[in-house]
C-alpha cells in the first residue's frame, strides 16, 4: 500500500518527530510508514487522515497485489 504521508508532512513543514508526537506513535513508525515498509492499522490510518483533514483514500492508496 502506497501513501502520501511524506508529501503531506513536508507540505505542512513538519519533521517526522513532530508528526510522531502529534499522532502518538514513534518516529520510527512514521519513517516505516513513509517508505512503505509498514502498513498502519485502521485506527492509525484514521488518525493520520483526520490529522491532515483528509479522507483515508486521499492519504493511502491501496493497490491489489499482482500475480
Amino acid at each position: 500500500m502506497k501513501n502520501r504521508l511524506e508529501e503531506l508532512r513536508r507540505e505542512r513543514g513538519l519533521n517526522q518527530e513532530d508528526l510522531a508526537r502529534a499522532l502518538r506513535v514513534s518516529r520510527q513508525t512514521i519513517g516505516s510508514l513513509e517508505n512503505g515498509r509498514y502498513n498502519p492499522s485502521i485506527a492509525l490510518a484514521f488518525r493520520i487522515a483526520r490529522y491532515f483533514g483528509l479522507s483515508i483514500e486521499e492519504v493511502f492508496i491501496y493497490e491489489e497485489e499482482q500475480g
Binding site: Q28, T29, A43
Partner: peptide
Amino acid sequence: EIEVEDERN
C-alpha cells in the same frame, strides 16, 4: 509510553 504502546513496536 508512546514507545511502548506504538502499534509497530
